[in-house]
Simulated assay, not measured.
Amino acid sequence: MTEEILTLPEVAQLLKVAEKTVHTTTQKGEPPAFKVGGPWRFRRTDLTAWIDAETRRASGEEDSK
């Protein structure tokens, strides 16, 4: 099974934010990404896990554990 790799513009579209926002936050370490040459790349599975974790954090679920 091949894991889907997304580009920065694709992630921006997925998250419904500007590409600059994705670029700036990625440089700070979130969402999880890696570089191939110069451009950032994102694994869809990593993004899904990150979105789930951020959703739980925002709803306070992690605080109740």
Rank of each mutant, 00 (worst) to 15 (best):
M1P: 14
M1S: 15
T2F: 10
T2L: 10
E3V: 06
E4D: 07
E4A: 09
E4V: 11
I5W: 05
I5N: 01
I5F: 00
I5S: 00
I5M: 00
L6N: 05
L6S: 08
T7H: 06
T7P: 07
T7Q: 05
T7R: 05
L8C: 15
L8E: 14
P9F: 03
P9Y: 02
E10S: 04
V11D: 08
V11Y: 05
V11K: 05
Q13I: 09
Q13L: 10
Q13H: 09
Q13T: 10
L14P: 02
L14A: 05
L14V: 03
L15R: 01
K16Y: 02
V17Q: 00
V17A: 01
A18D: 10
A18R: 08
K20L: 05
K20P: 02
T21N: 00
T21P: 00
V22I: 04
V22P: 04
H23E: 08
T24F: 09
T25K: 00
T26H: 03
T26N: 02
Q27G: 13
Q27A: 13
Q27D: 12
Q27V: 11
K28T: 01
G29D: 01
G29E: 04
G29N: 04
G29A: 01
E30M: 12
E30A: 13
P31E: 06
P31I: 09
P31Y: 09
P32D: 11
P32H: 10
A33F: 07
A33M: 09
K35Y: 03
K35W: 02
K35D: 01
G37K: 06
G37L: 09
G37C: 11
G37D: 08
G37P: 09
P39C: 06
P39M: 06
W40G: 00
F42N: 00
F42I: 04
R43Y: 13
R43C: 09
R43F: 13
R43P: 09
R44N: 07
R44M: 08
D46E: 07
T48C: 06
A49C: 11
A49Q: 14
A49N: 14
W50M: 09
I51A: 13
I51K: 10
D52T: 11
A53M: 15
A53W: 14
A53F: 14
E54I: 05
E54K: 09
T55S: 14
R56L: 07
A58K: 13
S59T: 14
S59C: 12
G60H: 05
E61P: 09
E61A: 14
E61Y: 11
E62C: 08
D63F: 12
D63T: 15
D63R: 15
S64V: 15
S64A: 15
K65M: 13
K65V: 15
